[in-house]
C-alpha cells in the first residue's frame, strides 16, 4: 500500500478533536481570606502555629481543610464555592474565642461564593502596645507596655516577655538571632517595660534587622506578638 501522509493528518485531527472534551474538575478558585483582630488592632502570632480549620459537610469522609495564620494574623485559603464551617480548634491561639460551653468553641458558618474577605474577632489575653525601638550600633532597646485585656475570672498571668531580633521578617522564638527575656514575676510596672538585645554580626552583612516583642502567657502555648518592625542598624 502506498503511504499516504494526508490520512495520518486526518486521523490525528479526528483524535485531537475528540479529546477536547473536558475530563476534569476545575481547581478551587474562590479565595477566602481575612485577618484576626481585636477591635481593629492587629493580633501578632507566630508564623504557621495557630491553625484554622474549615469543614465542608456532605462530601463523603469528614476531614478538615487546614489553614494557619500568618505572623500578622492574616489567613488565606483557596476553596470551591459552597457552605463551610470554620473553627479555630480548642486551646489554640493566645486569645479567647466565643464558646458555646466551657472548652467548646463556637463554629462560624461561612458561605463561599467568589472571592471574599472575612475578618475574625477575638479577645487576646494581653496586648503589647506603644512599642518604640532605639538602635545604638547593633543594640536594640525596646520600650513598650503590656496591657491586660481579659480580666476577672478568666485572667491569666504573664509567664515571660521576649524581645526577638532576626535577619529575616520571620521573628519568633523559633526564628531569631538574638533575644532578651524578662520573667513575668520581674515586671514591676506593666505600663513601662524595656528590654535590650544585641544582634550578632550577620553574614552576609546587612544593615537592617527585624524585631518583634512576644508575650508568653502562663498556660497558653502560643505567644502573642507586637507588630513587626524593621530597624536600620550600623
Amino acid at each position: 500500500m502506498k503511504f499516504r501522509f494526508h490520512y495520518i493528518i486526518l486521523l490525528s485531527f479526528v483524535l485531537g478533536a475528540s479529546s477536547c472534551k473536558k475530563d476534569n474538575y476545575d481547581a478551587p478558585s474562590s479565595t477566602l481570606k481575612g485577618r484576626i483582630m481585636y477591635n481593629g488592632e492587629e493580633i501578632g502570632l507566630e508564623y504557621n502555629q495557630v491553625p484554622l480549620e474549615l469543614y465542608q459537610p456532605g462530601f463523603g469522609k469528614v476531614g478538615a481543610i487546614a489553614a494557619s495564620f500568618a505572623q500578622d494574623g492574616t489567613y488565606s485559603t483557596l476553596l470551591f464555592d459552597g457552605n463551610y464551617k470554620m473553627i479555630i480548634p480548642a486551646s489554640q491561639g493566645p486569645f479567647q474565642w466565643r464558646e458555646t460551653t466551657a472548652g467548646v468553641r463556637d463554629t462560624l458558618a461561612v458561605t463561599v461564593s467568589g472571592n471574599q474577605t472575612l475578618d475574625l474577632q477575638a479577645t487576646p489575653y494581653f496586648m503589647i502596645r506603644a512599642a518604640t525601638y532605639t538602635v545604638t550600633g547593633k543594640t536594640v532597646l525596646a520600650n513598650f507596655r503590656a496591657d491586660q485585656i481579659i480580666t476577672g475570672s478568666n485572667a491569666k498571668t504573664i509567664e515571660r516577655i521576649n524581645l526577638y531580633i532576626n535577619k529575616t521578617q520571620f521573628v519568633s522564638s523559633a526564628d531569631n538571632i538574638a533575644s532578651a527575656e524578662i520573667a513575668g514575676t520581674a515586671i514591676t510596672n506593666p505600663a513601662a517595660i524595656s528590654l535590650t538585645a544585641t544582634a550578632p554580626a550577620i553574614v552576609p552583612a546587612q544593615n537592617y534587622v527585624f524585631v518583634r516583642i512576644g508575650i508568653k502567657i502562663a498556660g497558653v502555648e502560643d505567644m502573642i506578638f507586637s507588630p513587626l518592625q524593621k530597624l536600620q542598624t550600623n
Binding site: 469522609k61 469528614v62 486551646s91
Partner: peptide
C-alpha cells in the same frame, strides 16, 4: 520545641472519618 499537641500523637483524619465515635486529641 515540644508542643502540648505532641503529648499524644495525632489520630489521622482517615481513622476519624472511618469511626465517628473517636474523639480528637487535645491541642491539635
Amino acid at each position: 520545641r515540644f508542643q502540648f499537641g505532641n503529648y499524644y500523637s495525632l489520630i489521622t483524619n482517615e481513622i476519624l472519618s472511618a469511626n465517628p465515635k473517636i474523639v480528637k486529641q487535645p491541642n491539635q
